[in-house]
């Protein structure tokens, strides 16, 4: 089922949810196009889940509006949900029900279950639906939430940090599933606080911080935002090409301690690797900094007060 031509799957206008004390979401203007995988990126507490709950009609906006396929998220919430698959940030607790019973229960509320689709999804993620929910590991609970969100082939998937608890293999399987859903005509709105995950699957990215949409960027621009903390260890007695490293594109904050060099790298690694290509490097460690660090380095904005320690 394809969404109507010309109607944006998601459109918000000055959408605000004010919890007081500068917490919530403020003046969100956003449009997500059909068959787009839109990443919604932000640190913890930035307002991602609030946005998603507003879109799902779980909470009422203080002001502004949100529309899904042209329908108001509060007024037409039942019709909206016919076309949406939802994966909440916290997997609900189903106690002693088996996975299969949970699927039947919620599928029953939707009017029926596509049994072949459920079987295919469960088999794909190796999720044993005959086990009780209580016996599931956190990864299996997340898999069940994925099955619930995808089982009715929705036109729009709203996913709140969907890969939490999944091992890397299942994460890859999930990314594949997302692409398939998009290729079948679905639109995806995916929140995350992991830059590499968003970079992996999304076409476009919205970055939210302190309840405000800071930027909407194409994937290429995101790659520019990308920062890595790199540590290089040179072989004993090896001369460190300090100046070449310092002059490399994207290299910042370089420090040298003995045979170890630490720096941050924006964008591609290529200039750095070229700079050290003539030297013997015995160890190289690259870590992805937290979003907060990325914001600090990229947007040069002060750290939010709540995160001070």
């Amino acid at each position: 089922m394809l969404p109507e031509m010309g109607t944006a799957p998601i459109r918000t206008s000055q959408l605000t949810k004010n919890y007081g004390a500068r917490r919530g979401l403020f003046d969100l203007d956003l449009q997500v196009s059909g068959q787009e995988v839109f990443g919604y990126l932000g640190p913890n507490g930035a307002g991602k889940t609030t946005t998603i709950r507003l879109l799902m009609g779980m909470i009422r906006p203080t002001s502004g509006s949100a529309h899904i396929f042209g329908m108001d998220c509060v007024r037409d919430s039942v019709e909206v949900k016919r076309r949406v698959g939802y994966l909440p940030g916290d997997v609900p607790q189903f106690g002693s029900l088996s996975g299969g019973e949970v699927v039947a229960y919620l599928g029953g509320m939707r009017g029926g279950v596509d049994t072949r689709r459920v079987h295919a999804l469960a088999e794909r993620f190796e999720l044993d639906l005959s086990r009780r929910f209580r016996e599931y590991s956190s990864g299996n609970k997340q898999k069940l939430a994925i099955v619930l969100a995808f089982m009715h082939r929705p036109d729009l998937l709203i996913l709140d940090e969907p890969t939490g608890g999944l091992d890397p293999l299942n994460q890859q399987e999930f990314y594949l599933l997302l692409r398939e859903a998009r290729d079948d005509g679905a639109t995806v709105f995916l929140s995350s606080h992991i830059l590499s995950e968003v970079e992996h699957v999304c076409d476009r990215v919205g970055i939210v911080r302190d309840g405000k949409l800071v930027r909407v960027a194409q994937l290429d621009e995101l790659r520019h935002i990308r920062v890595h903390n790199v540590e290089l260890e040179f072989a004993p007695g090896e001369t460190i090409p300090e100046q070449q490293i310092r002059d490399s594109d994207g290299v910042e904050s370089m420090t040298v301690s003995g045979q170890r060099v630490a720096c941050s790298v924006h964008g591609s690694f290529e200039p750095l690797l070229r700079a050290v290509s003539g030297s013997r490097v015995v160890d190289l460690v690259s870590t992805e900094p937290s979003l907060e660090e990325i914001f600090l380095s990229y947007f040069k904005e002060p750290k939010p007060k709540l995160l001070k320690s």
Binding site: L97, S98, G100, E101, V103, A104, Y105, G107, G108, G112, V113, T115, V118, H119, A122, E123, E126, L127, D128, L129, S130, R131, E135
Partner: peptide, 27 residues
């Protein structure tokens, strides 16, 4: 102890889960 069994990949076939009211009672 958990009995070993073949994993199941299907939704519960119990028809009561699909009927309003009945699902609440059955649960």
């Amino acid at each position: 102890p958990l009995r070993s069994h073949r994993p199941g990949y299907d939704a519960s076939p119990t028809v009561l889960w699909y009927l309003p009211l009945a699902r609440g009672l059955y649960e």
